[in-house]
Amino acid sequence: MSPILEINNLYKSYGSTEILKDVNISIEQGDFLVLVGPSGCGKSTLLNCIAGLEPITGGDLHIDGRNMTNVSPKDRDIAMVFQSYALYPTMTVAKNITFGMKVRGVDQATQDEKLAYVAQQLQIEPLLKRKPGQLSGGQRQRVAMGRALVRDPKLFLFDEPLSNLDAKLRVEMRTELKALHQRLGASMVYVTHDQIEAMTLATKIVVMKGGVIQQMGTPAEIYNRPANLFVADFMGSPAMNLIPAKTRAKGGEVHIEITRQNGEPIILTDANNRDLPQDVIIGVRPEHIADASPQNGEMQAADCLIEIVEPAGADTYAVMQLGGKHVTARLSSETTATAGVAQKLTFDLGKVSYFSPETGLRLN
């Protein structure tokens, strides 16, 4: 079976300015692909290229095995949901949803049937006679999604659809979107700059920076094995701790030396990664630094001077200085960590990432 979306060596330039550089993506039917990255990284431009709203400068693009590189947007069998909703203010919700079908000459019985199905899926049946001005932001977003869903397209494209909603509603709509994807088994491409949104929704994530794909993988791959320092820093909240360290080989294992503000350096030993250069950046997620407990081979304890303690409900964040950087540990709410006091913490060396300070690339 051919991929539902396949992009090969795609380039996009405006004049001499390259916006997208050698983009290669392939997703299967039913995938939920999230394009994530900071503002200006090219993710919305890429979405517009997939939609056909922007011509591409080089490469090609296939949807369900058909070359769509020079095909107009209306013939690509896609449906797009925009950040701004783009609803017709003078039409009722029902007319907004069925308008596209009416234009394409779909018979009234089919229109009514699809409208009823979509209204039920999105729980907007009571709103069908209202106009967009009488709806909340979340309701308008549902209507915009309904208009896309009645198309039953090969590919749904979402451009930051939740960014106009308040924080609580965003979380609710995120859950609804995920449930909708699971019910429909539809193929979706979704743009966001919110990495939590990316992690929770995606079956596959593409992390972009400066028009270049930094990494493509499942949420677990991106989170646990970031390909470079940018991905490590961008994905995860709080971000991965990135600590400069020195290594030296000693009797079949590597000693990792991390400087401390006061006192001797912390020495951690790693028997699994023996080919590390002398200078590394060690990446460790806050949840992989814990209160000292019975240790197994990969958990190693060190005394750390806690500078700041931030209770956050189920978690408590403790901040210290290691390797000249602020390092955050995600401890349980029962922790005894106290600001200004040294605390024995364990580091899970089975979960750490190593990066080259020169190239920023992953070493293990």
Rank of each mutant, 00 (worst) to 15 (best):
I7N: 00
T17K: 15
L20V: 12
D22I: 03
Q29W: 06
L46A: 02
T57G: 03
G58E: 13
D60Y: 10
L61G: 10
H62N: 10
V71D: 03
R76G: 12
L87T: 05
Y88V: 01
P89F: 11
Q111S: 12
A116N: 09
A119G: 06
Q120Y: 01
E125V: 05
E125Y: 06
P126H: 07
L127E: 06
V143F: 05
G146H: 04
A148P: 06
L149V: 12
N164S: 06
V171Q: 09
E172A: 06
L180A: 04
L180I: 12
V189W: 04
D194T: 02
T200I: 14
T200Q: 07
L201S: 04
K204E: 14
R225Q: 07
P226W: 00
V231I: 01
A232T: 12
K246P: 00
G251A: 13
H255N: 13
I256M: 10
L268D: 14
N272M: 07
I281W: 12
I289V: 11
M299W: 12
E310F: 02
Y317K: 06
Y317H: 12
M320P: 02
G324Y: 11
H326D: 10
E334S: 11
E334D: 11
T335Q: 05
A339Q: 09
D348A: 14
D348W: 09
L349M: 15
P357F: 11
G360M: 05
R362A: 14
N364W: 01
